[in-house]
């Protein structure tokens, strides 16, 4: 009989509730496989009385493997685990199996958070997160789960080293850079000036490896702002990367030697902050015409904004 729900438990006493898709001719009907249709019929039945039982737990396992995006099943499963006082480490091991099969699924991570919070022990977490990030190094939900974990269990000490490892792997991994910013500033405490100095050096050396890398640049500029350092601190660094020679009113770029359009952008901001608007305008024009032309409108806007500001103050 193919229409039975195959389970270790007896379901004879339960009358499955069929799915009501609405009206006689509903939109977006899905031609489910029979096993899914049957299992969700039992799910609706046990959920309608909020049954707490091992068979219901088994049902959620089966359904998650058929559709891991079924958030209702995950939430029910968490309630069952707690009500039945199940071994939560066993659950974490099971979730790891599911995660390996469904890499992109994100309901898993909310569930894991709920379980680990209750389990009150992060021992399995960092190795497992690392395994997942080896497979998908920019997975948004894994990184945000890691942030939650670090905060929840005060795991700050390992984080700089870990982001360094990920950044060594791929200096353009922006998720790793974002996590590094979190690792430095996330505690909300005052970080010392020496930490800011170290991070500025770190970002600069990463930029030298790939001078167009926006992740490292965003990090560097973010650091300067957060550390209340003037942008002019990196003027010489930018001059070298943009191969810029300046006179009092002119900006010249050596077209054969420029290695970073972003350096030129930062220089424009520095000139502008010093009210050297004609120099800033030349840098923006170079960006618009030559080094970052798809953002032409943006560079023109920056230029006209600066000129307007100058006219207003004159």
């Amino acid at each position: 009989m193919p229409l039975a729900y195959l389970s270790d438990y007896s379901w004879d006493d339960v009358i499955p509730i069929p799915q009501d898709d609405g009206g006689e001719n509903p939109l977006a009907l899905i031609a489910y496989h029979d096993d899914y249709k049957i299992a969700t019929g039992y799910l609706r039945a046990v959920m309608s009385i909020e049954e707490v039982s091992d068979r219901a737990l088994q049902l959620t396992s089966d359904l998650i493997f058929m559709n891991p995006a079924h958030y209702t099943v995950w939430a029910y499963r968490a309630r069952l685990l707690f009500a039945l006082k199940k071994d939560l480490e066993e659950e974490l091991i099971w979730v790891e199996e599911v995660s390996r099969q469904f890499l992109k699924n994100y309901q898993i991570w909310n569930h894991r958070e709920v379980i680990v919070d209750k389990y009150d022990n992060p021992i399995r977490e960092l190795p497992f997160i690392e395994e997942m990030l080896e497979l998908d190094s920019k997975n948004y939900h894994v990184w945000s789960y890691r942030q939650w974990l670090v905060r929840r269990f005060d795991l700050w000490v390992t984080e700089l080293a870990y982001t360094d490892h990920m950044i060594q792997d791929d200096v353009r991994n922006n998720s790793a850079w974002n996590h590094r910013f979190f690792a430095v500033f996330g505690k909300g405490e005052d970080v010392g000036q020496s930490v800011i100095d170290d991070e500025i050096d770190y970002a600069k050396s990463a930029i030298l490896k790939a001078p167009q890398n926006a992740s490292a640049w965003n990090y560097l500029i973010g650091l300067l702002k957060r550390g209340e350092r003037p942008m002019s601190d990196i003027e010489k660094f930018c001059n070298d990367l943009a191969a810029v020679q300046t006179t009092e009113h002119a900006v010249n770029v050596d077209n054969d030697r420029i290695s970073s359009a972003r350096a030129l952008e930062v220089l424009a901001d520095i000139y502008n902050s010093r009210n050297e608007v004609d120099k800033a305008a030349q840098a923006w024009t170079l960006l618009a015409e030559k080094y970052d032309p798809i953002r032409e409108n943006y560079w023109k806007f920056k230029k006209s904004q600066a000129i307007q500001r100058l006219a207003a103050t004159a």
Binding site: A28, L29, I30, A31, Y32, H33, Y36, T40, M66, N67, P68, A69, H70, Y71, T72
Partner: peptide
């Protein structure tokens, strides 16, 4: 009817 591989969107009807 959408084919069975749409089951992954069954919680996004």
């Amino acid at each position: 009817q959408l084919p069975p591989n749409y089951t992954g969107l069954d919680a996004s009807k």
